[in-house]
Design a protein around this nucleic acid. Sequence first.
RNA 1: GGCGGGUUGGCGGAGAGGUUACGCACCGGAUUGCAAAUCCGUGAAGACCGGUUCGAUUCCGGUACCCGCCUCCA
Length: 474
Amino acid sequence: MVQIRLTNTRTRRKEDFTPIDPRNLRLYLCGPTVYDRAHLGNARPVLVFDVLVRLLRHAYGAGHVTYVRNFTDVDDKINARAAETGRPIRDITRETIGWYHDDMDALGAERPDHEPRATDFIGQMIAMIEVLIGRGHAYAAEGHVLFDVRSYADYGRLSGRSVDDMIAGARVEVAPFKRDPMDFVLWKPSDGDQPGWDSPWGRGRPGWHIECSAMSEALLGPSFDIHGGGIDLQFPHHENEVAQSCCAHPGAGFAKVWLHNEMLQVEGKKMSKSLGNFFTVRDLLDRPAGQGGGVPGEVIRLVMLSTHYRKPMDWTEAKRAEAEAVLRRWRGLVAGIEPAPSPAPAVLDALCDDLNTAGAIAALHDLAGKGDAAGLLAGARMLGLLLPGMGGWAEAGADADADAAGLIGTLLAARAAARSARDFARADAIRDGFAAAGVAIKDTAGGAEWSLQPGFDAARLRALAEALSGSQPA
RNA sequence: GGCGGGUUGGCGGAGAGGUUACGCACCGGAUUGCAAAUCCGUGAAGACCGGUUCGAUUCCGGUACCCGCCUCCA
């Protein structure tokens, strides 16, 4: 096993990764605010971390890694959703968490060891805010508690900004109770119909940033190994987490390594609702046949991992098609094969080099080309690909009901008969009919094999069978 | 305006200061009744301008274009 190297946002360098405690590696990933389905961009950090955790478990032992990913279940977006729909907040967040699990499971992402919900850690947040006030890093004003950025000399270091530059570029009006325009909210007052908790500053709710500081501390301690998230969270969210946690626990250091993934783009732009290029993981998984059909989670995963996490990546239909073809071929190669005892060094080397998943995939192609099915399988599983239970989509009769399967069998027999009778016009007509209906035929030494294509149309298959029975050969 | 990311062959996408990335597509060959699938093989790159170097796509400087972030907003 080679040295794992990771690009640390904190130092802007690729550096050797050394765990604080090799018997207990601790990771934290910022999870979703649960008011709606996860969009495709949300899946990127989840998959990056999933591969990272698989790699760390391989390197340090499955039992020696603790992976935490939170749910933000108190947020104004959730309140707004509740007001729009008239539904209780608890119902909305419970349902959304269920969706999130379903969707990430479908991508083959393992569940974290802990999935804390912010509302279960309000006490810890209040305690942390009290510590910050006690140390002179925060102040109460008009029912709010604000973090005093001027009290923390390193504020702006993670994101590479200076407080003065940020103020110079500020365009928005500043709340009058702030000492400094950059001060951010730790606690804010709630009115009657907003979710709120009693606190020394009155009934209120936490600011977004304090949630992650409190939950990571509660589950991982004041210092831990790796903290991740999308690059869009670097500022202000992660900068503020650093300020809160480092000021509450001077000397602890908080996260040793910060990992940030670049944005997922669609048509060259960051995915967003206002641009209309927004779609969810579920939209893709359940896409109707007319729009190209559902995209298997495994295919989404391969597309995501085919670009290095620190580069912007475009989701395109062409990539989907290529990934699907590759996985079909690989699935065929490894059918009935046991994985090699350990992933090939080329795969591990690539992953150890700052999680070079694209390089690891190239190594998998290499193994496939050499016919090393056991090696391919072991390597692919390191990336969370070709997992057992995720390949149903690629099996011959995956989406076919018994009727369709029977019909295809009958038609294939008819074609075989026509071929042996050297009636190639009839045999080719059947083949063309299969193609038109979305059934792919492979002639092998052991007979014809078939599989359904994304645009499969059972009605056209029935029409083919009827047309054929009306023209039985003499 | 500040900070950050990107620009590689037809498309996608990596590593490395000098030797084939890899995949898809294309083209040639094998195979096939003809195809598909499969196998073998060829070709194809490094935004622009300078600099360093025996040698740069890889290092340094600059330019262009694209993209992201920039006070909780009650």
